[in-house]
Design a protein around this nucleic acid. Structure first.
Length: 282
DNA sequence: ACCCGTGTTCGCTG
DNA sequence: TCAGCGAACACGGG
């Protein structure tokens, strides 16, 4: 269930698993049609025999490029709410809810797993990702591009919608999700209910810094839990046994970690949970 | 049974 | 034309 940090971890894992590898065989779950739309499970067979070349992450999107038999071949992968990429050594059983299984020429299996199937796994002929309107519409990626506070403020200037809801709009910033939105507004000391256009320049600047801090904090937490680069694969939040690493997300009723006097409140905005401290977020 | 969920898209309204 | 809202998608866990 990924936001930018988890998708970044998936990207690093996939680059390591797939480097210089060729896809020997491919199996696609025929019941998972919606993941492949408008393509079909059968059409994915075009990937058989293709060699991995590069992987790019933009926000929560993974763009994989392969060298196919007749030219470049792209895959657009979005993990939705429950998508994840897992590796299994030769002989190991497939994970449950595996929707696509890539058998690599080193014998390993790479699975795209997605229980609820809100994700996407779409073949992109010629790897022409710039032809995808969904990708073209994305705003800047905080990790890759940084955040231009002035540009962000200009983007928020016309919006009556609450700042928390605006942060979930992928055309404003690509990759911020429900956790990072609550966490960064808490770090910036900004009330999530404020209409986006009422934020001052100084507040947007603070928010931009807070988004980057929160993303880096979450990535570091993953690295500590899974040792990225050390060779071990990194787990996903839902799988690991460790404590909730977040400041306010998922902590209704807890004392505020900043002011110590307020209590973290859970409310619902645009049908999504928001966590905040009403005492120190103004 | 009921509510909840790290996401996005679609159709409706003003 | 578009901002804003709520339903829908799909399925398991508490």
């Amino acid at each position: 269930m990924p936001e930018l940090p988890e998708v970044e971890i998936a990207a690093r894992n996939l680059r390591r698993w797939m480097a210089r590898r060729r896809i020997g065989a491919l199996r696609a779950d025929a019941r998972a049609r919606r993941l492949f739309r408008p393509g079909t499970p059968a059409a994915l067979q075009a990937l058989a025999g293709a060699r991995f070349q590069t992987l790019r992450r933009i926000g929560k999107n993974l763009l994989l490029t392969f060298a196919g038999k007749s030219g470049p071949l792209g895959v657009w992968s979005h993990l939705g709410m429950t998508g994840k990429w897992l590796r299994r050594a030769a002989g190991e059983p497939a994970p449950s809810a595996s929707r696509v299984e890539l058998t690599l020429d080193d014998g390993a299996h790479v699975h795209y797993v997605d229980r609820r199937m809100f994700g996407r796994f779409r073949l992109v002929p010629g790897a022409r990702f710039d032809g995808l309107s969904e990708i073209a519409a994305l705003g800047p990626d905080p990790l890759t591009d940084g955040i231009d506070a002035a540009a962000l403020r200009a983007r928020l200037a016309g919006l009556r919608t609450p700042i928390k809801v605006a942060l979930l709009d992928q055309t404003i910033l690509a990759g911020v999700g429900n956790i990072q939105a609550s966490e960064s507004l808490f770090r910036a000391g900004i009330d999530p209910r404020r209409p986006a256009r009422t934020l001052t320049g100084a507040e947007v600047k603070r928010l931009a810094a807070a988004i980057l801090e929160s993303i880096h904090f979450t990535l570091d937490d993953f690295a500590a839990a899974g040792a990225d680069g050390g060779g071990a694969d990194i787990g996903y939040v839902e799988e690991r046994q460790t404590e909730n690493p977040f400041l306010v997300y998922g902590r209704p009723g807890a004392p505020c970690p900043r002011c110590k006097k307020g209590t973290i409140v859970r409310m619902v905005q645009a049908q999504r949970a928001t966590f905040f401290c009403p005492r120190c977020q103004k």
